[in-house]
Deep mutational scan, measured.
Amino acid sequence: MSHKQIYYSDKYDDEEFEYRHVMLPKDIAKLVPKTHLMSESEWRNLGVQQSQGWVHYMIHEPEPHILLFRRPLPKKPKK
């Protein structure tokens, strides 16, 4: 599979999560399941490479070739 064609967005966040999206080329996108969110082993098997802790959290129906990921931000110590 062509890992060079996978595009990784910059990371962005809110108060709770860090987010990123990953755009897959058409040949890989056709392998994305339409019935469920992928486990880490499933998206890694497609060639997506990112650190541990990312969760495929949403399917964007109009653009199924874009995978939406998030992971919890580290808890800030209370002052």
Score class of each variant (00 low, 15 high):
L46V: 04
K76Y: 12
Y8V: 06
K30N: 09
P72T: 08
Q52G: 12
S39M: 06
P62W: 11
K79L: 12
Y7C: 11
H65N: 12
V32A: 07
L67H: 04
S2C: 14
E42I: 00
I28C: 09
V32P: 00
D13A: 14
T35N: 15
M58K: 15
I59Q: 11
Y19G: 02
V55E: 14
L46K: 02
D27L: 00
H65E: 10
Y57F: 11
K34Y: 07
G47W: 06
S2R: 15
N45Y: 09
Q49Y: 08
K11C: 12
V55T: 08
R70N: 00
W43T: 04
Y7G: 09
E63P: 06
P77H: 10
Q52F: 06
K30G: 07
D14W: 02
L46N: 00
S2E: 15
W54Y: 00
D10P: 14
M38W: 02
L31E: 07
H56F: 01
R20S: 05
L31G: 07
L68G: 04
M38L: 09
D13N: 14
S9F: 14
P64V: 03
K34V: 06
Q52C: 12
M38I: 00
S51P: 09
K4A: 03
S2H: 15
P72K: 11
H36F: 03
K79Y: 11
S51V: 03
N45L: 10
K75A: 12
K4L: 14
I59H: 13
Y8K: 10
Q5S: 15
K76H: 10
D13H: 14
V48Q: 01
E15N: 09
S2Y: 15
K30M: 09
R20P: 05
S39R: 08
E40S: 07
V22D: 01
P74W: 09
G53W: 00
K78W: 10
W43P: 04
H60W: 10
H36I: 02
W43A: 02
E63H: 11
G53D: 13
Q49G: 05
K78F: 12
W54E: 02
R71G: 01
P62S: 15
H56T: 04
V32Y: 04
V48F: 04
S51N: 08
P62T: 15
P74F: 09
A29R: 05
H65W: 10
E18A: 06
N45T: 10
Y7Q: 07
G47P: 00
E63M: 08
Q52H: 13
I66P: 01
E42C: 05
I28H: 09
G53S: 11
G53E: 11
Y57G: 01
S41R: 13
Y8L: 01
V55R: 05
M58I: 06
H60T: 07
D10S: 12
Q5M: 12
E18S: 08
P25D: 04
M58N: 08
E61I: 06
N45P: 03
Q49R: 13
R44S: 06
A29H: 07
K30E: 09
K78G: 13
K26D: 13
Y57S: 03
P77W: 09
Y12H: 09
K79I: 12
D13F: 14
L67R: 02
K30A: 11
H56A: 01
P77A: 12
L46R: 01
L37W: 00
E40I: 06
S2N: 15
M38V: 02
F69D: 04
Y7S: 11
S51E: 14
R44E: 04
S2A: 15
E15W: 15
K34A: 07
S41T: 13
W43I: 06
Q50H: 07
P72V: 05
H60N: 15
Q50N: 03
Q50P: 01
H60F: 13
Q50R: 03
V48A: 04
I59C: 08
R71F: 00
H56W: 00
H60G: 07
M38D: 00
K78E: 13
W43D: 01
A29P: 06
Q52D: 11
L46G: 01
K75S: 13
Y7R: 14
P33V: 01
P77G: 11
V48P: 05
Y12W: 15
K75F: 09
V22I: 10
F17V: 05
P74T: 12
D27C: 10
A29V: 09
P33D: 05
Y19H: 08
E42W: 04
K30I: 11
K34C: 07
S51T: 08
K78Y: 11
E40M: 03
Q5C: 13
K34R: 12
H56N: 07
L37C: 09
H56I: 07
P77R: 12
H3A: 15
Y19S: 00
L67A: 01
W43V: 08
H65Y: 08
E18Q: 14
V55Y: 07
E15K: 01
M23Y: 13
Q49I: 14
L68E: 05
E61G: 09
P62M: 13
P77M: 11
I6V: 09
Q5R: 15
L31F: 10
Y12S: 06
E15T: 06
L37I: 05
R71Q: 00
H36N: 07
P33T: 03
I66H: 06
K76C: 12
V32T: 05
K79H: 12
L73C: 08
H36T: 08
Y12Q: 13
K26M: 12
V22M: 05
I66Y: 03
L24M: 02
P25N: 09
A29K: 06
K75L: 10
H56P: 00
W54V: 01
L37M: 07
Y7T: 14
F69S: 00
L46I: 09
M1S: 13
S2I: 11
E61N: 10
K26W: 10
K26Q: 12
M1G: 14
R70S: 02
S41E: 14
V32R: 04
P62N: 15
P33Q: 00
D13M: 15
R20V: 04
K11Y: 11
E61P: 11
S41I: 10
W54Q: 03
S39A: 09
V32F: 06
P25Y: 01
E61S: 10
W43E: 02
M1F: 15
S51I: 00
D10Q: 14
I6W: 08
K26P: 14
V22G: 04
D13G: 12
H65V: 04
H60M: 06
K26Y: 09
Q49P: 01
R70D: 00
I66E: 02
P25F: 00
A29T: 08
M38H: 01
A29D: 05
P64R: 10
Y57W: 09
M58C: 09
K79A: 14
L68R: 10
G47R: 02
V48T: 06
R71I: 06
K76N: 10
K78N: 10
H21W: 15
M1R: 11
L24R: 02
K75V: 11
